[in-house]
Every structure is written in structure tokens, then in C-alpha cells.
Computed example of a mutant assay.
Amino acid sequence: MTVRVVTYNILVPILANRPEHYTKCQIEFLQTDYRWKLIQFQLEQEIIHHDNTIICIQELSLPLLPKLELFFRRLNYTFFHNLYEERHKDYMGVGIAIPVSMQLNSISIIKIGDHIRSICKLREKETRLLPEESNLHQDVKNKLTEPVADPWETAINRRNTLVCLQVMINNKSLYIGTYNMPCLYKEPDVMIIHSSIVKDLMFELSDGQDFILAGDFNIRPQDACYQALTKKDYSDIDLPQSNIYEISYKRNAAQILKSAYREKNGIEPVYTNFAHSPQSPNFCETLDYIFFNGHLSVTNVLELPDHPTGKSYPDETHPSDHLMIAATFQL
């Protein structure tokens, strides 16, 4: 028995409709209606041509949610989702769609920042100085040091949410999770915190059973976060310290993930994200993954291009700046 897992960052409309950001894209290809037709077609092909297809979506948005609900209902699917961002980001979120015929045993929706807060304890405040001493002390401190954001506080304040389902396929249990990592390249400590905690949470939720974790992780194969997720006892990375919280959490370096594309092809895709913007000219990197753990073997992966076409995605045939990726697993 096999299961097909598809993951796709479909790019929220409020970010797509920015010609000043996607400066090398034709405006008509940034329009939601045009992009939706392509997204719908790509997803439908995966559902039609494969058995037990599970769809993971990132950058789900309020404008596209009704369309996706109707699309999945038409194909006899149930869509579980969580919108967690604010209005100026189209209430961005994630979701998982499964066939209505697939047995569903449990649903977990975990806001990672809230989970981090639950395992952190505020440090006791330092002994208070007299008012005049305190003011003098603060003035000197302000002149000598620049304020630095505490990475744990930043990690707590992120809204990113993990959605995880437990399904039964041919009487075999499978946990399937999807996540969109905070895009904080300039704050790698925050990404280390989130990636480690999401990985360890999947092990905790699945409790020794097979699981798949798919999504946009905003990390490259050469990054330390990726190495920490996939290399056992990887030691070239440490969780950051906090000046605000006492941290009891320790990442489990012995629990690691396998990547479907690397297991099947011996290497990750050449790229899964391609876009040109003033801030990131000609950005072309692999950021999306289908990770897994347990007694699963990869029998097939969706073939991806070796190099991008055009000047930037979205374009005539690519409705998002991300590629859809997919893998078939033998249970």
C-alpha cells in the first residue's frame, strides 16, 4: 500500500500582487485568478493520477480559502487548516487535505510560539537599584550597548502553526504534518529554535509510529538547521541562550529526519524557489522538503527541473515562486 504526499507553497495573493517586488514578472501572471487556475490544475493532476494522495498547503490565504474548500469538496476531500497571520499578510496559514474515504484518528493544531512559551520560565528580575542609581546605570548601559532582540522572545512571538493529522491507511497508522518555518534569515537562532522544536514535536505526537513532515522550511541543504534535522548527533549547532527565560528544552540530536528527495535521488532538488526581487536578486534555492521517519520507503518523487525557466516566478506556467514537490511512500 502506498501514500502520495504533495506539498506546495502557493504564495498568498497580497504578496503576489506586488509588481514592485516581482520586478521581472509580467503583471498578468501575478493575478490571483490566473494563478489559481494553474494551482488547481497541478493539484488535481496529483489527486487523479495517484492513490491515497495527501495535499499539504503553505501560504494558504483567506482570499483563496473558499476556492480551495470548494475544490477539495468537488474531489471528495476534507481540508483541515489554520490561518494564523495578520490581515496585512492575507491571514496566511497552512492546511492538509485528505480523501474523505481515509480514516482520520486525530487532529493536532499547535502554535509553535505558544508551545515554546509553555516550556520557558521567566527569569527572576535582578535586584532593583535606587531610582537615581537605576537611571544612571541605564544611561551608561544604553550608551555602551545596542539593544539585541532575545531569540527566544522572537521565537515565542511568531504565529507559525503546525497542523498534524493521524490517518489510517490499510490499517496502518501514519502521522502527517505540515509547517511553514519563519522566514528569518538574519535571525538564524530563531530558525534553529523553531526547526528543532517542530521536529521533536512530530516525534512526540507520533510516539514511535511512522510520520511525514512536509512544508516550506526556509532553510537550504547546506544550512546548519538542515544538518541538525538530518544528521544524527550533529554538534555544530547549539540552541541560543536567553536573557529573559530559563530554557528547560534540550533538542534531541539523536532523533533525525530523512528527506524523500535525497533518499530517492541521492541529492536534494536543485531548487524549489525562484524569484527576483530588489532585496534578493535571482534567488534560486531549495527551501521545500518532505521529511519522514519510520518504516517508510520512497518509491517515487515528482520530477523537478534542473534549472529555472524565465526571469522570475510566478510566470506563465508557474503560479507561485515555489515549485510543488511530491513523493510516493510504501507503507
Rank of each mutant, 00 (worst) to 15 (best):
E204V: 00
G93K: 02
L174A: 11
H318Y: 09
L129T: 06
E46N: 03
I48L: 10
K67M: 10
G177C: 13
G294C: 11
F291W: 05
Y84H: 15
I55S: 00
K199E: 08
S108I: 00
S320T: 03
S195G: 06
I54A: 06
R262C: 07
D139C: 14
Y245E: 03
R117G: 01
I176Y: 11
T145H: 12
F211V: 12
L60T: 01
G93Q: 02
Q40H: 07
N17F: 05
V301Q: 03
T7K: 02
I96N: 02
I39V: 08
L15Q: 08
T328C: 05
Q166F: 12
K125V: 08
I119A: 08
R220D: 08
K121Q: 09
P221N: 14
F29V: 07
P19H: 12
E133C: 08
L213W: 13
P182G: 12
R74L: 05
Q222A: 05
K231G: 00
Q241W: 11
L205A: 13
N293R: 15
I119P: 04
D315A: 00
T23C: 00
I219P: 10
P147M: 06
I39D: 03
P131L: 04
I96T: 01
L130W: 02
E46G: 03
D223T: 15
I116A: 03
P63A: 06
I110N: 15
Y84D: 07
N135V: 12
K199R: 15
N76P: 01
K231F: 00
L239T: 00
I10Y: 01
S173L: 14
T7A: 03
E44S: 05
L331G: 15
V5M: 07
N9V: 03
L30W: 10
D315T: 00
D33H: 13
N180I: 05
L213T: 12
R158D: 08
Y234L: 13
L213F: 10
I290Y: 04
F71L: 09
E44H: 04
P221A: 06
C284D: 11
S173I: 15
G93R: 00
D150L: 07
H49M: 05
R87Q: 15
R73N: 10
K89M: 01
I116F: 08
I219N: 10
E204A: 13
L165R: 07
E85P: 07
E153M: 03
E44F: 01
R73I: 08
R159M: 10
L43C: 04
